[in-house]
Design a protein around this nucleic acid. Structure first.
Length: 272
DNA sequence: AGTATTTGACCGCG
DNA sequence: CGCGGTCAAATACT
C-alpha cells in the first residue's frame, strides 16, 4: 500500500468514526428531546460513552500518522529527547511517542488529570501547563500539555496529548449526563463531581446572555464554585461557598464538540 | 489525614 | 547558557 492509499484509508476511517459520533450525538439529542422525563440513564450513558469513544478513536487515528509534523508545527517541539536516563529532568519523550494536538475551547476532556508543572514559554503570553493522568500509579503514561492560544478573541486551548491511557480511566470517568432543568438542550459531562446546574439567569452577574454562556464552556466554569481555572494565570481559584459545580464539558448537543475542526482539516492537509 | 496544586529547583538538550 | 520538561517540597483544599 503506498502512502496515498494509506492516508486515504486513514482518512476514511476518521470520517467514518466522526460520522458515527455525530449519529450517536443525534440519537442522544433525540432521546433527550423526548418529553418523557425518565430517560434510561444507562442508555444515555452508553450513548455519551460512544460519542467520547468516537472522538478518542478519531484522535488516535490522526495521531498515528500526522503527529510528527503537527507537533512540530503547532507546539514547537519534537526535535529533542532521544536519551532515556534516570533522574530529574530526564527526557523520555521521542518523536515516535503517541501524541496528537487538539484545539478546544475547554481543557476538559472527560479524563482525570493531575497538574505537575507550569512553565512560562518564551514569546507566549500564557504559561504552559503540564498534566499527567491521575492514574499514573497504575502505570498510565498519558500526559497532556495545555497552552492558551492568544490569537483567538475567544479563549482557545491548544492541547497536546502524549501517550494513550493505559489505565481504566475511561471506564472510571464514564460521563454521567444530567439534563439541565433550565437549559434542556444542555448536557453536562462530568467525571466525578455531582452537578447542580448553575445556568440560572438570575445568578448571572455578567452581561452576557444565557446563550453566550452556553456557547462558551469557559463561562460555564466561571459561574460555579468548583475550583476553576483562571485563563490568565492558568491556576485554580476557588469561588464562594454556596452554589455548586459545573464542569467545563458542558455544551449544546447541537454544537456537540469543542474540538476545532479547522485544526483537523490542517491535519488532513498534511496528508496531501 | 489524604489528595491536589503551586512553584522554584533541577536537568538535558541545542 | 537559555529553554522547556519534570520533580518534589510546601501549600491549599476537601
Amino acid at each position: 500500500m503506498n502512502e496515498n492509499n494509506l492516508h486515504s484509508s486513514k482518512r476514511k476511517r476518521v470520517i467514518v468514526e466522526l460520522i458515527k459520533g455525530k449519529e450517536t450525538a443525534t440519537r442522544l439529542q433525540t432521546l433527550l428531546q423526548d418529553p418523557v422525563q425518565d430517560h434510561d440513564p444507562a442508555l444515555v450513558n452508553q450513548l455519551a460513552l460512544q460519542i467520547l469513544r468516537s472522538f478518542t478513536k478519531t484522535l488516535s487515528e490522526l495521531s498515528s500518522c500526522a503527529e510528527s509534523t503537527q507537533i512540530a508545527a503547532l507546539s514547537g517541539e519534537s526535535k529533542k529527547k532521544q536519551v532515556v536516563k534516570d533522574g530529574r529532568g530526564c527526557y523520555k519523550r521521542r518523536k515516535s511517542v503517541d501524541s496528537w494536538v487538539t484545539v478546544s475551547s475547554t481543557m476538559e476532556d472527560g479524563c482525570a488529570w493531575r497538574k505537575y508543572g507550569q512553565k512560562v514559554i518564551l514569546n507566549s503570553e500564557y504559561p504552559r501547563c503540564y498534566f499527567r493522568c491521575t492514574h499514573k500509579h497504575e502505570g498510565c503514561k498519558a500526559l497532556k500539555q495545555v497552552q492558551i492560544m492568544k490569537e483567538d478573541p475567544n479563549i482557545m486551548y491548544q492541547i497536546t496529548y502524549f501517550n494513550r491511557h493505559t489505565c481504566q480511566e475511561t471506564l472510571i470517568s464514564t460521563p454521567q449526563i444530567d439534563l439541565d432543568p433550565y437549559e434542556p438542550n444542555l448536557i453536562c459531562f462530568q467525571s466525578k463531581v455531582p452537578i447542580i446546574s448553575q445556568m440560572k439567569k438570575e445568578e448571572d452577574t455578567q452581561s452576557e446572555d444565557a446563550k453566550s454562556l452556553v456557547m462558551d464552556p469557559w463561562q460555564d466554569i466561571m459561574v460555579g464554585s468548583e475550583p476553576i481555572w483562571d485563563p490568565r494565570t492558568m491556576m485554580r481559584s476557588y469561588g464562594e461557598e454556596e452554589g455548586s459545580s459545573l464542569h467545563g464539558l458542558d455544551m449544546e448537543v447541537n454544537q456537540f464538540s469543542n474540538i476545532d475542526y479547522f485544526h483537523i482539516d490542517e491535519i488532513f492537509s498534511s496528508y496531501n
